[in-house]
Protein backbone atom coordinates (compact mmCIF):
# COMPACT_ATOMS: atom_id res chain seq x y z
CA UNK A 1 0.00 0.00 0.00
CA UNK A 2 3.01 2.25 -0.13
CA UNK A 3 2.25 4.23 -3.23
CA UNK A 4 -1.33 4.50 -4.30
CA UNK A 5 -0.76 5.43 -7.85
CA UNK A 6 -3.78 3.72 -9.43
CA UNK A 7 -6.13 5.47 -7.04
CA UNK A 8 -5.85 8.74 -8.84
CA UNK A 9 -6.20 7.12 -12.19
CA UNK A 10 -9.35 5.29 -11.16
CA UNK A 11 -11.18 8.43 -10.19
CA UNK A 12 -14.40 8.33 -12.12
CA UNK A 13 -15.86 11.77 -12.23
CA UNK A 14 -12.87 13.97 -12.04
CA UNK A 15 -13.73 16.22 -14.95
CA UNK A 16 -14.85 19.16 -12.86
CA UNK A 17 -11.68 19.72 -10.95
CA UNK A 18 -9.64 18.08 -13.66
CA UNK A 19 -11.00 19.72 -16.76
CA UNK A 20 -8.10 18.68 -18.90
CA UNK A 21 -6.36 15.33 -18.84
CA UNK A 22 -2.87 15.83 -20.02
CA UNK A 23 -1.92 13.44 -22.78
CA UNK A 24 1.50 12.04 -22.08
CA UNK A 25 1.22 13.27 -18.53
CA UNK A 26 3.87 10.87 -17.35
CA UNK A 27 6.51 11.26 -19.98
CA UNK A 28 9.22 10.03 -17.67
CA UNK A 29 12.74 11.27 -17.62
CA UNK A 30 12.50 14.18 -20.02
CA UNK A 31 10.46 15.98 -17.38
CA UNK A 32 13.51 16.22 -15.20
CA UNK A 33 15.64 17.82 -17.86
CA UNK A 34 17.19 21.02 -16.60
CA UNK A 35 18.23 24.14 -18.43
CA UNK A 36 20.97 25.19 -16.03
CA UNK A 37 23.57 23.24 -14.12
CA UNK A 38 23.01 25.04 -10.82
CA UNK A 39 23.35 22.52 -8.02
CA UNK A 40 21.58 22.50 -4.68
CA UNK A 41 24.20 24.90 -3.26
CA UNK A 42 23.65 27.38 -6.05
CA UNK A 43 27.00 26.53 -7.61
CA UNK A 44 27.14 26.32 -11.37
CA UNK A 45 30.05 24.55 -13.01
CA UNK A 46 29.55 26.65 -16.15
CA UNK A 47 29.77 29.87 -14.15
CA UNK A 48 32.79 28.45 -12.34
CA UNK A 49 34.47 27.61 -15.64
CA UNK A 50 33.84 31.14 -16.89
CA UNK A 51 35.13 32.59 -13.63
CA UNK A 52 38.25 30.43 -13.93
CA UNK A 53 38.87 31.66 -17.47
CA UNK A 54 38.57 35.26 -16.31
CA UNK A 55 40.56 34.74 -13.14
CA UNK A 56 43.40 32.72 -14.66
CA UNK A 57 45.45 35.80 -15.73
CA UNK A 58 44.98 37.32 -12.27
CA UNK A 59 46.04 34.06 -10.69
CA UNK A 60 49.09 33.33 -12.76
CA UNK A 61 50.15 36.73 -14.15
CA UNK A 62 49.12 39.28 -11.54
CA UNK A 63 49.75 37.30 -8.35
CA UNK A 64 52.11 34.73 -9.95
CA UNK A 65 50.70 32.22 -7.49
CA UNK A 66 52.98 29.49 -6.26
CA UNK A 67 51.82 26.37 -4.41
CA UNK A 68 53.76 23.86 -2.44
CA UNK A 69 52.40 20.63 -1.12
CA UNK A 70 49.24 20.50 -3.23
CA UNK A 71 49.51 16.73 -3.18
CA UNK A 72 48.58 16.80 0.50
CA UNK A 73 44.98 17.55 -0.35
CA UNK A 74 43.17 14.21 -0.52
CA UNK A 75 42.08 13.55 -4.09
CA UNK A 76 38.94 11.79 -2.88
CA UNK A 77 36.51 12.22 -0.03
CA UNK A 78 35.64 15.25 2.01
CA UNK A 79 38.23 17.55 3.52
CA UNK A 80 37.96 20.82 5.34
CA UNK A 81 40.52 23.27 4.02
CA UNK A 82 41.49 25.89 6.57
CA UNK A 83 43.58 28.96 5.78
CA UNK A 84 44.60 32.32 7.13
CA UNK A 85 42.60 35.23 5.81
CA UNK A 86 43.93 38.70 5.01
CA UNK A 87 43.61 41.82 2.88
CA UNK A 88 40.58 44.13 2.88
CA UNK A 89 39.01 42.14 0.04
CA UNK A 90 40.86 38.90 0.66
CA UNK A 91 42.54 37.48 -2.42
CA UNK A 92 43.26 34.22 -0.65
CA UNK A 93 39.74 32.82 -1.10
CA UNK A 94 39.50 33.02 -4.93
CA UNK A 95 43.14 32.02 -5.31
CA UNK A 96 42.75 28.87 -3.20
CA UNK A 97 39.50 27.90 -4.92
CA UNK A 98 40.93 28.59 -8.36
CA UNK A 99 44.20 26.81 -7.66
CA UNK A 100 42.65 23.64 -6.29
CA UNK A 101 39.99 23.39 -8.97
CA UNK A 102 42.65 23.91 -11.61
CA UNK A 103 45.22 21.49 -10.21
CA UNK A 104 42.99 18.82 -8.66
CA UNK A 105 39.95 19.18 -10.89
CA UNK A 106 37.64 19.01 -7.86
CA UNK A 107 35.05 21.59 -6.93
CA UNK A 108 35.76 23.65 -3.83
CA UNK A 109 32.93 25.21 -1.85
CA UNK A 110 33.92 28.39 -0.04
CA UNK A 111 32.22 28.84 3.31
CA UNK A 112 31.66 32.46 4.29
CA UNK A 113 29.43 34.67 6.37
CA UNK A 114 25.83 34.67 5.19
CA UNK A 115 26.06 38.44 4.96
CA UNK A 116 27.03 37.93 1.30
CA UNK A 117 23.63 36.47 0.53
CA UNK A 118 21.90 39.70 1.47
CA UNK A 119 23.78 41.76 -1.14
CA UNK A 120 21.96 41.84 -4.48
CA UNK A 121 23.94 40.49 -7.47
CA UNK A 122 27.02 39.82 -5.32
CA UNK A 123 25.17 37.18 -3.33
CA UNK A 124 23.95 35.40 -6.45
CA UNK A 125 27.34 35.48 -8.18
CA UNK A 126 29.00 34.34 -4.98
CA UNK A 127 26.69 31.34 -4.77
CA UNK A 128 27.12 30.47 -8.47
CA UNK A 129 30.88 30.60 -8.00
CA UNK A 130 30.78 28.09 -5.16
CA UNK A 131 30.06 30.23 -2.10
CA UNK A 132 28.06 28.66 0.70
CA UNK A 133 27.03 30.32 3.94
CA UNK A 134 29.10 29.06 6.82
CA UNK A 135 26.57 27.19 8.91
CA UNK A 136 27.49 23.98 10.70
CA UNK A 137 24.65 22.15 8.94
CA UNK A 138 25.88 23.24 5.53
CA UNK A 139 29.47 22.20 6.26
CA UNK A 140 28.32 18.82 7.57
CA UNK A 141 26.19 18.18 4.50
CA UNK A 142 29.03 19.12 2.16
CA UNK A 143 31.72 17.18 3.96
CA UNK A 144 29.93 14.13 5.31
CA UNK A 145 27.05 13.49 2.95
CA UNK A 146 28.56 14.73 -0.27
CA UNK A 147 32.27 14.19 0.44
CA UNK A 148 33.26 17.52 -1.03
CA UNK A 149 36.08 19.96 -0.40
CA UNK A 150 35.07 22.93 1.69
CA UNK A 151 37.24 25.95 2.38
CA UNK A 152 36.83 27.93 5.57
CA UNK A 153 38.62 30.84 7.18
CA UNK A 154 38.16 30.37 10.92
CA UNK A 155 39.36 33.91 11.63
CA UNK A 156 36.19 35.17 9.98
CA UNK A 157 36.05 38.92 9.39
CA UNK A 158 38.64 39.48 12.12
CA UNK A 159 41.31 38.39 9.62
CA UNK A 160 40.66 40.74 6.70
CA UNK A 161 39.64 43.67 8.88
CA UNK A 162 42.86 43.82 10.89
CA UNK A 163 45.26 46.70 10.23
CA UNK A 164 48.43 46.38 8.20
CA UNK A 165 50.46 46.87 11.39
CA UNK A 166 49.10 43.49 12.57
CA UNK A 167 49.92 41.72 9.31
CA UNK A 168 50.50 37.98 9.45
CA UNK A 169 49.36 37.87 13.08
CA UNK A 170 46.64 35.25 12.91
CA UNK A 171 43.54 36.10 14.90
CA UNK A 172 41.66 33.73 17.14
CA UNK A 173 40.21 30.78 15.23
CA UNK A 174 36.65 31.52 16.25
CA UNK A 175 35.41 29.05 18.83
CA UNK A 176 36.89 26.07 17.08
CA UNK A 177 33.64 25.25 15.33
CA UNK A 178 35.53 24.10 12.25
CA UNK A 179 37.24 21.36 14.28
CA UNK A 180 33.95 20.16 15.67
CA UNK A 181 32.43 20.00 12.20
CA UNK A 182 35.40 18.09 10.83
CA UNK A 183 35.15 15.64 13.74
CA UNK A 184 31.43 15.15 13.25
CA UNK A 185 31.85 14.75 9.51
CA UNK A 186 34.80 12.40 10.02
CA UNK A 187 37.04 14.29 7.61
CA UNK A 188 40.55 15.67 7.98
CA UNK A 189 41.40 19.34 8.30
CA UNK A 190 43.95 20.46 5.71
CA UNK A 191 45.68 23.66 6.83
CA UNK A 192 46.90 26.12 4.21
CA UNK A 193 49.34 28.94 4.92
CA UNK A 194 49.05 31.95 2.62
CA UNK A 195 51.62 34.72 2.21
CA UNK A 196 51.12 37.82 0.06
CA UNK A 197 47.44 38.46 0.61
CA UNK A 198 48.19 41.02 3.34
CA UNK A 199 50.15 43.17 0.89
CA UNK A 200 47.63 42.76 -1.94
CA UNK A 201 45.17 45.04 -0.20
CA UNK A 202 46.50 46.43 3.08
CA UNK A 203 44.03 47.99 5.50
CA UNK A 204 45.28 51.35 6.80
CA UNK A 205 42.33 52.18 8.99
CA UNK A 206 38.66 51.30 9.37
CA UNK A 207 35.47 53.33 9.63
CA UNK A 208 33.46 51.49 12.26
CA UNK A 209 30.68 54.09 12.42
CA UNK A 210 30.08 53.94 8.69
CA UNK A 211 30.14 50.15 8.86
CA UNK A 212 27.47 50.18 11.53
CA UNK A 213 25.36 52.61 9.54
CA UNK A 214 25.62 50.52 6.39
CA UNK A 215 25.15 47.30 8.30
CA UNK A 216 28.30 45.71 6.88
CA UNK A 217 31.00 43.87 8.86
CA UNK A 218 33.72 46.49 8.26
CA UNK A 219 34.56 49.44 6.01
CA UNK A 220 38.30 49.52 5.35
CA UNK A 221 40.35 52.36 3.92
CA UNK A 222 43.04 50.58 1.98
CA UNK A 223 46.38 51.60 0.56
CA UNK A 224 44.90 50.67 -2.81
CA UNK A 225 42.24 53.36 -2.43
CA UNK A 226 44.88 55.96 -1.63
CA UNK A 227 47.11 54.88 -4.50
CA UNK A 228 44.54 54.23 -7.24
CA UNK A 229 41.45 56.14 -6.18
CA UNK A 230 38.10 54.42 -6.65
CA UNK A 231 39.74 51.71 -8.73
CA UNK A 232 41.59 50.66 -5.59
CA UNK A 233 38.33 49.48 -4.09
CA UNK A 234 38.56 46.37 -6.23
CA UNK A 235 42.09 46.14 -7.66
CA UNK A 236 44.68 44.45 -5.43
CA UNK A 237 48.41 45.20 -5.58
CA UNK A 238 50.38 42.55 -7.51
CA UNK A 239 51.98 40.96 -4.47
CA UNK A 240 53.52 37.55 -5.02
CA UNK A 241 51.17 34.96 -3.56
CA UNK A 242 52.64 31.86 -2.04
CA UNK A 243 50.58 29.06 -0.61
CA UNK A 244 51.70 26.08 1.34
CA UNK A 245 49.69 23.00 2.16
CA UNK A 246 50.46 21.58 5.57
CA UNK A 247 49.99 17.98 6.60
CA UNK A 248 46.32 17.03 7.01
CA UNK A 249 45.11 16.72 10.58
CA UNK A 250 43.06 13.59 11.26
CA UNK A 251 41.01 13.44 14.42
CA UNK A 252 40.87 10.07 16.03
CA UNK A 253 37.26 10.36 17.18
CA UNK A 254 34.08 8.60 16.06
CA UNK A 255 32.07 10.71 13.60
CA UNK A 256 28.39 11.73 13.80
CA UNK A 257 28.19 12.52 17.49
CA UNK A 258 26.14 15.27 18.99
CA UNK A 259 28.94 16.62 21.13
CA UNK A 260 32.68 16.45 21.29
CA UNK A 261 34.96 17.38 24.14
CA UNK A 262 35.27 21.12 24.24
CA UNK A 263 38.80 21.09 25.57
CA UNK A 264 39.84 18.73 22.78
CA UNK A 265 38.23 21.03 20.19
CA UNK A 266 39.96 24.13 21.53
CA UNK A 267 43.26 22.26 21.77
CA UNK A 268 43.10 21.05 18.17
CA UNK A 269 41.94 24.43 16.94
CA UNK A 270 44.82 26.20 18.65
CA UNK A 271 47.24 23.57 17.38
CA UNK A 272 46.09 24.13 13.80
CA UNK A 273 46.25 27.88 14.23
CA UNK A 274 49.79 27.78 15.55
CA UNK A 275 50.89 25.43 12.78
CA UNK A 276 49.58 27.84 10.15
CA UNK A 277 51.14 30.75 12.05
CA UNK A 278 54.52 28.97 12.19
CA UNK A 279 54.35 28.11 8.49
CA UNK A 280 53.54 31.73 7.65
CA UNK A 281 56.54 32.92 9.71
CA UNK A 282 58.75 30.37 7.95
CA UNK A 283 57.60 31.56 4.54
CA UNK A 284 58.20 35.17 5.57
CA UNK A 285 61.72 34.30 6.69
CA UNK A 286 62.43 33.00 3.20
CA UNK A 287 60.68 35.83 1.39
CA UNK A 288 63.13 38.37 -0.05
CA UNK A 289 60.60 40.63 -1.74
CA UNK A 290 56.90 41.26 -1.31
CA UNK A 291 56.51 41.54 -5.09
CA UNK A 292 58.90 38.90 -6.40
CA UNK A 293 58.83 36.33 -3.64
Amino acid sequence: MASGRPVLGEKKRSTAVVPIRLPGHETGDTDDARLSDVDEWGRSERTRALARTIYEPVYSKWFRTEWTGLEKIPSEGGSLLVANHAGAIPSDAPVIMHGIEKELDRPVYGLADYFFRTVPVVGTLWARAGGVSARPGNAYRLLREQQQLALVFPEGTKGPSKSFTDRYQLRRFGRGGFVEIAMRAGVPVVPIAVVGSEEAMPVIFRLPTLARTLGVPYVPITANLLAMGPLGAVVPFPAKLKLQELDPVYFDVPPVQDRYSNSRIMEESEMIRSRIQEAVYDMLRDRRSVWFG
Binding site: M1, G4, R5, V119, P120, V121, V122, T124
Partner: peptide
Protein backbone atom coordinates in the same frame (compact mmCIF):
# COMPACT_ATOMS: atom_id res chain seq x y z
CA UNK B 1 16.79 42.39 -8.66
CA UNK B 2 20.10 40.70 -7.95
CA UNK B 3 18.56 37.59 -6.39
CA UNK B 4 18.07 34.23 -8.01
CA UNK B 5 16.89 31.89 -5.26
CA UNK B 6 16.76 28.12 -5.42
CA UNK B 7 13.24 26.75 -5.08
CA UNK B 8 11.94 23.29 -4.50
CA UNK B 9 8.52 22.20 -5.75
CA UNK B 10 6.20 19.31 -5.22
CA UNK B 11 3.76 18.18 -7.88
CA UNK B 12 0.08 18.32 -6.92
CA UNK B 13 -0.51 14.62 -7.58
CA UNK B 14 2.42 13.82 -5.31
CA UNK B 15 0.74 15.90 -2.60
CA UNK B 16 -2.40 13.78 -2.84
CA UNK B 17 -0.35 10.59 -2.97
CA UNK B 18 1.67 11.64 0.06
CA UNK B 19 -1.48 12.35 2.08
CA UNK B 20 -2.96 9.03 0.99
CA UNK B 21 0.25 7.23 1.84
CA UNK B 22 0.24 8.40 5.45
CA UNK B 23 -3.52 8.04 5.86
CA UNK B 24 -3.63 4.46 4.69
Amino acid sequence: FGFDPLLQFVEEDDVVRALLHVTR
